[in-house]
C-alpha cells in the first residue's frame, strides 16, 4: 500500500438532507492521522450518517468530502468499516477474510498468510474453519475486525462496534481496535456509550441534531464541555 497516506480527511460544509429534513447540517472539520476520534452524541444525532458520508456510502447533498492525500487513487481502497451488527458471509471464518483480501487483489499465498495472522491476533485461530454465522455475536464482531485488519487500512471506521456486545466482548473489541491503531491505522468510531468514549477517545466530535457542536481533545471535552447540549449529555440529561 506504500507510505503515501490518503489523509487528511476534510469535510467542507457537508450537509445531508432527506425529504427536506436536514439530517447532517453544515459540518466542517479535518481528521488527520494520530488521535483516535470518537464521534459522540445521543441517538439520532447523525453519528452513523456522518461515518457513512466519510466512507463514501452516501454523497452529501451539499458540501464536499475530501481526501487530500488521495492524489487520484480510489480512497475506498485504503479504508475499512466495521458495523454495529457484523455482516458475515455464509462461509467459514477464514473464508470471510480470504474473500475480502481477494477483492483487494492480494495474491493467493499472501492471502493465506495474512488470514492466519489476523485470526491468530484476534484469538479466532481455532474457529477458522467454522461457518462464520454460527459464531457468537462477540466472535463475529472480532472476525469483522480481523477482516478489516487484514486489509491494513489507513483509516478504520467503526459504527457502534460494541452496541450489541456484553462487557467481556466489548473489552476484547476495544483491545483489538487499539492493536490495529498501534499498526498506524487512523481510528474513527461512533458510540453513545460515555464510559467507552472515556476509554477510547483521544479526540471527541460531539454531534447534536446533525450539527457538529464540538471537536476537542477528549480530556478537555470531558472536563469542560463548551456547549450546553454536551454538558447535558455528559450528565445524562439530554432530551432530544
Amino acid at each position: 500500500m506504500g507510505e503515501a497516506t490518503i489523509l487528511p480527511l476534510e469535510l467542507d460544509r457537508v450537509s445531508f438532507v432527506v425529504g427536506g429534513a436536514p439530517l447532517i447540517s453544515d459540518v466542517s472539520c479535518t481528521l488527520a492521522a494520530g488521535p483516535r476520534t470518537v464521534i459522540l452524541g445521543p441517538n439520532g444525532a447523525g453519528k452513523s450518517l456522518l461515518l457513512r458520508l466519510c466512507h463514501g456510502f452516501l454523497q452529501p447533498t451539499s458540501g464536499r468530502v475530501l481526501w487530500h492525500g488521495a492524489n487520484g487513487v480510489d480512497p475506498l481502497r485504503f479504508q475499512a468499516m466495521v458495523f454495529q451488527r457484523p455482516v458475515m458471509l455464509r462461509r467459514s471464518a477464514a473464508a470471510n477474510i480470504l474473500y475480502a483480501l481477494k477483492l483487494r487483489g492480494i495474491p493467493r499465498p499472501e492471502r493465506e498468510r495474512i488470514t492466519a495472522d489476523v485470526l491468530g491476533r484476534t484469538g479466532l485461530a481455532r474457529l477458522a474453519d467454522k461457518p462464520a454465522r454460527v459464531l457468537s455475536v462477540g466472535e463475529q464482531q472480532r472476525l469483522a475486525l480481523a477482516r478489516a485488519w487484514a486489509l491494513k487500512p489507513q483509516v478504520l471506521f467503526l459504527d457502534e462496534p460494541t452496541a450489541s456486545l456484553d462487557p467481556a466482548a466489548t473489552f476484547a473489541v476495544e483491545g483489538i481496535v487499539n492493536a490495529i491503531r498501534a499498526g498506524g491505522t487512523c481510528i474513527v468510531m461512533t458510540t453513545h456509550d460515555l464510559a467507552q468514549a472515556r476509554r477510547m477517545a483521544d479526540e471527541v466530535m460531539f454531534l447534536h441534531h446533525g450539527r457538529l457542536l464540538e471537536k476537542t481533545p477528549a480530556a478537555s471535552f470531558f472536563a469542560a464541555p463548551a456547549s450546553e447540549p454536551a454538558r447535558a449529555f455528559l450528565k445524562g440529561e439530554l432530551s432530544w
Binding site: 455482516v87 458471509l89 462461509r91 477483492l103 486489509l151
Partner: peptide, 21 residues
C-alpha cells in the same frame, strides 16, 4: 450491501457473492 461496498466489490463481484451465499 454496505459490507460488500465497503470491501470494494463491484456489481459483478457482488452478484457472484450473492449467488454463492
Amino acid at each position: 450491501e454496505e459490507q460488500l461496498r465497503s470491501l470494494g466489490a463491484g456489481p459483478g463481484r457482488a452478484m457472484g457473492a450473492l449467488l454463492w451465499d
